[in-house]
Design a binder for these strands. Structure first.
Lengths: 373, 373
DNA sequence: CTTTGAAGCGCAATCGTTTGTTCTGTTAAT
DNA sequence: ATTAACAGAACAAACGATTGCGCTTCAAAG
């Protein structure tokens, strides 16, 4: 019995020892390699290794090559945190958007990405999912190490810019785009919503429409307010009278359009065109129009806003205002980078306004062969 | 003249001095505040401050409160890099996707985001834009400091997983989803494409279709190969014979569907249904069908794959296979987190397969009131 | 009166880099 | 022969946090 125990004990110890040795080896193999490891292995110091890897001229070519070779063979990558902590810059720009699956934002991100890559910046994408509290938390956690600057489009819930104030005070470069806030004094990139709406309505007028209605968005958001104003001004300038009963706010989704189209059809004097501040309401309205036997664009023409991809997929295809989001992204990134690299000197916030353009499709083509843009 | 100069010189100096003082103050105000600043200001040490902010029990409540109050008032936020460098973990999971504006990926990201938030992880989103070289660079730069683990769907250009090998060797947790690689031995989350195709085709058969064609994708990608196989097996199991002339590969965009629909219509024995591996080709085909006076679904029924948002916007609405991307994201995040927190123990890669489901809409509803799912 | 213990806080090492400065040789100039 | 100049490499101090350990102080226990 005793002997058995001894053997078993001995075996156990041996096994444990062997396993431990194996485990340790595995761990060492799996451990991330640092410049210290390289220095130790090559009998030199970390400063030499660091300099060699960054092609410092004071390190001889042979030492450089030797170190680089070792680093390559062992898949060395510098630790981002350590480097950026020391250097004081992470070469990263953060982008905060409500949601990435909205086509507009995805394209803005493309623009940002392009300019950032050109300038050797990384892009960190964050979505607020249109929740203010999430936005606040993200803004807080993003800065202080993660990014050197922020490009943001505020969520639909956001009414003031209090949570941006600390950034501004701390001198973190900030650029707002699309939905912006009046009360934060930073660089902004916006599109001329008024102009976009104006040309869209002008186009409808040119197509011969006389009673033009409007699907608007929440009026506390500037973009929708401005679009509505553009609509009103276009009517006024054309000498058309404004009929309040043809104006509907908060028409953000398909269902709204579907429902209101029913109401319009029931009117004794229905509109012959609708300018909508977004494309989804148009889709719903057209759907209902088809059901009711109302012809688009013959009986009622539509022009939307945003130029969503579906606009050329649905039947009839939908005319819409193109916002040039890629350009917007590029512009925002360019301004942010300019601001980041100019940090020491005084920086004056500016506002860039981009002109949208009109894409004419079937939903508004009453007169064929007449193209307005 | 001399006097003038003197005065001007004096003035200049005074102004410069005042400006400099102001500038310095501004800079100090704008400087990011650190734990050391707090310690100095409150006559204590950084360790106490650090502990107080993290609610360490060994710090008295009053000290804690005092420090927290000061921190709050001065918008203190810990430097992410320093903290994570010291702690060895960034509590961040990286997500690499081909493109974020593809609805499927956007929804996967939603799932990931949700699980990550629940577990106090940040999410870092990166898109490869379907470029292999960009993917390789991103993978390299992401790891080593920025993220503790990676969830990735490879780009369409990616044929092997060489660039993932270093991560695996270094013990970085990795989960692949959607498009995966056979040659990398890691945890994977995929959907059962074969099953999805099978039930889609089965549904068409139940609707009374006898000659069912197929729009496929590039056959070197597993997802498309498997979908095609599911189609073939469903036909075989139903005793229907396979007609190679009804099978088209590389049908990824609208235009492909538009063109092929023309060919189909010109056949003397055209198909009465199409199972497509994606929804865009269906949209194009339906467009052409309308032009040719072919009725959908009466003359030809369609079932797509991916359940794109446009499926319920177009007319007729399109039946499609739903891949449950949100669930996929959640699963992937869950597995990754499990792997990250279990790092010390041995971890065995596993593959999770999710079952897709069929969403039946107008494009395949030959018999009304018969619902198959 | 000494010992024990715990509460409350400070000291200093550490994470992995970068980078200004210093040290050691070697060679050229005085 | 002495110095200056220089390349090449090492030393060491940051960057801003976290954290094991050690030092006080004071009260209760022995």
């Amino acid at each position: 019995m005793n002997i058995y125990l001894c053997i078993s004990d001995y075996l156990r110890k041996t096994i444990v020892k062997a396993w431990w040795r194996y485990f340790k080896q595995e761990m060492i193999k799996k451990k991330k390699i640092t410049i210290q490891d390289i220095a130790r292995e090559l009998n030199t110091t970390i400063s030499t290794v660091s300099r060699a890897l960054r092609d410092h001229p004071r390190i001889s070519v042979e030492t450089r090559e030797k170190i680089k070779k070792y680093a390559l063979e062992h898949d060395y990558q510098p630790d981002f945190r350590a480097a950026s902590l020391r250097q004081g810059s992470a070469r990263t720009i953060g982008v905060l958007v409500p949601r990435i699956d909205i086509h507009f934002f995805a394209r803005v991100l493309r623009g940002i990405d392009e300019v950032a890559s050109e300038n050797n910046y990384n892009v960190l994408i964050i979505q607020s999912l249109d929740s203010l509290s999430k936005e606040i938390n993200l803004v807080k956690s993003l800065v202080y190490g993660k990014v050197d600057g922020l490009i943001a489009s505020i969520s639909i819930e956001t009414l003031d810019g209090e949570h941006f104030k600390p950034l501004i005070n701390k001198g973190v470069p900030l650029v707002l785009f699309d939905k912006v806030l009046e009360d934060v004094d930073v660089t902004k990139v916006i599109i001329d919503d008024h102009y976009g709406a104006y040309i869209a309505v002008q186009h409808l007028i040119n197509q011969g429409c006389k009673r033009i209605g409007h699907f608007g968005g929440p009026q506390y958001l500037n973009i929708y307010k401005n679009r509505k104003q553009g609509y009103l001004d276009a009517l006024k300038d054309a000498g058309l009278k404004i009929d309040e009963s043809l104006i509907f706010d908060d028409m953000l989704v398909k269902e709204n359009g579907y429902e209101v189209m029913g109401k319009l059809h029931a009117m004794k004097n229905p509109p012959d065109a609708i300018f909508s501040s977004n494309d989804f309401a148009v889709v719903g309205a057209i759907m209902r129009a088809k059901e009711l036997g109302v012809k688009v664009p013959q009986d009622i023409a539509f022009t939307g806003f945003a130029n969503e991809p579906m606009d050329e997929i649905v039947d009839p295809t939908i005319s819409s205002v193109e916002q040039n989001p890629v350009k917007m992204g590029k512009e925002a990134a360019r301004l942010l980078i300019e601001q980041m690299e100019d940090k020491k000197s005084a920086f004056y916030p500016k506002t860039i306004t981009l002109k949208p353009s009109l894409v004419v499709r079937q939903s508004s083509m009453k007169k064929s062969f007449v193209i307005v843009s």
